[in-house]
Amino acid sequence: MNELIITVEVKESTAILKLYGILDISTNASIEPYLEKMGDIEVLVFDFSGLDFIDSTGIGSIMNAIYLSEEKHFIVRLQGVNDLTHQVFEMVGLYQILDAMQGEVI
């Protein structure tokens, strides 16, 4: 069974979502409730250091957060991205979208 564990740490105006396990079609809906609960934050950090696997639906969840950031006026940062996930993010253009929407990457 695939499992995704999410922990949230809020420091001042920054929320850090730490992802552990697998972010795929069976777990990607787990992120949405956390995004809906985000109050007045300036920065949302996705910490991928505990992530074992991400598929295209998981990437879609990250993309949704990036689009939400434009609507709610916060910045998305990515940290703890391993080499394989980094390559996938580059291949699908996630960094370019993040850069185009926010003017900065990571």
Rank of each mutant, 00 (worst) to 15 (best):
Q79F: 00
Y67M: 11
M63H: 11
T14G: 08
T14V: 15
L23K: 05
E12R: 13
V105D: 01
K37C: 09
E70F: 01
I6C: 11
V45E: 14
L17D: 08
D52P: 00
G21W: 07
G80D: 03
T7L: 12
L19G: 12
S26R: 12
G93R: 03
Q102R: 04
G39V: 04
S49Q: 04
D99E: 15
Y67I: 01
K11R: 14
E36V: 06
G103M: 05
K72Y: 02
N28K: 11
K18G: 09
L98W: 04
V10L: 12
A29Q: 14
D55H: 04
G39S: 11
Y95G: 01
D24H: 02
G21T: 05
V105W: 01
M63A: 14
G60A: 13
T85G: 00
E9K: 15
L4I: 12
F89H: 00
K72N: 08
I41W: 08
I62L: 15
V10F: 04
I41A: 10
E3I: 13
E36G: 07
K18C: 10
Q87L: 04
N2P: 12
E42S: 14
A15K: 11
T14K: 13
E12Q: 15
L51P: 02
S61R: 09
T27I: 06
P33I: 08
E90G: 01
S30T: 09
L68R: 11
G80Y: 09
L35C: 05
D52Q: 14
D99G: 03
F46E: 10
T14N: 03
Y34P: 00
G21A: 10
M1F: 13
Y95K: 00
I6L: 15
D99I: 03
E3Y: 10
K11A: 14
V8C: 15
M38E: 10
E71P: 01
L94K: 03
A15S: 15
E70A: 10
F74R: 03
L94W: 09
H86S: 01
M38F: 14
S56D: 03
K37I: 04
E71M: 05
F89L: 11
G58C: 08
I5A: 15
T7I: 10
K72Q: 04
D47E: 08
Y34A: 03
D24Q: 06
E9T: 15
L4K: 09
Q79E: 15
L51V: 03
E12L: 09
G21M: 07
I75A: 12
I66T: 12
M1A: 14
S30V: 09
E71N: 10
R77F: 11
D47L: 02
E70P: 00
S26A: 13
L44D: 11
T85C: 02
I97A: 06
I106K: 14
V76E: 04
Y67N: 10
F74N: 02
M1K: 09
M91R: 07
D24E: 09
L19K: 11
E32T: 12
S49G: 06
L84A: 05
D40P: 01
S13G: 02
A15Y: 08
G103H: 04
S26C: 09
Y20C: 07
E12I: 10
M63K: 12
V76H: 05
L19S: 08
